[in-house]
Amino acid sequence: MNSEKIAFIFPAFVNEYLGKEREILSSLSNDFETNLEITSDWLGKDLSNFQEDENNYLDEELLTQYITYTFSCSISDMLQNKGFKPDFITGYSMGIYAAIYSAKSIDFIAGLEIIKMAYHEMQAFLGEKEFGMGIVIGLSVEDIQMLLKSSTADVELINANAEFSHVISGEFNEVVKMLDIFKEEGALNTKLLKVSSPYHSKYVIEAAKNIGKRIQEFSIKTPVFPVISLIDQKSILSSKDVVGEISRNIDHSLNWYKTMQFLIANKARTIIECGAGNGLYKNGKFVEGDFQIFPITKYFILF
């Protein structure tokens, strides 16, 4: 009996497209074109001219979230229609919405509406202050925590992508200041993300509470496939758990590295990155184990 398992992993917002996502997906199914039309109709904005290298809306955070979600859901539809059934599903950061769609907990439009609601709730609580997130490559978690502790900057470590790749969140100027300090103290590189909200941090606790209340307005079903939490790596198996996770995902720190280790320890050998870009594939290179990650450019190996 083959006990090897399949995991679908969903990226957060795209920061950079590879430039051939739409072409690859169109060669495999019509799902993206169909879903992009649905997103356009729902949004009241024609997105048919979307191109990865031009007209890619990367400077429009909410629109990028809709397009990222549309890509991810379309890939999930395509894979499931071709017979791939995931043993595990997990979503990186805001990839949670496509993850719960893939687990059949919400329908496509509900996902768009939840993204919109969550974004506006966040913005309402953040007010005039500028916030941001950044990536630190090459420092250990201990070094980052020590430097955060010894500085006056009010910045939080909110995710581990790999042993030497981490994400911070906080007020924009403070994040910029800390990224400079990390570089001076030996980070191989640091980078600001194209995000204006301090996701997964204490700054959004009040927004998370409101999102937790408003999420009750949506029809959320029991997931058909287990969704793995990035917060504690537990399986989310009921609609109540999904509701709780959507709210927790806003203001709790995550651990992608640990989640990947959990998947591999539980025999996930074929891990499919369901989304545009290949960020999760790149991070996966720093996880030990007998597994393979398939980003969109390697889907041809699967069929």
Partner: peptide
Amino acid sequence: IELKSIGKYIV
């Protein structure tokens, strides 16, 4: 070698 040694050189 610690990665941060390389980072300090690279900067």
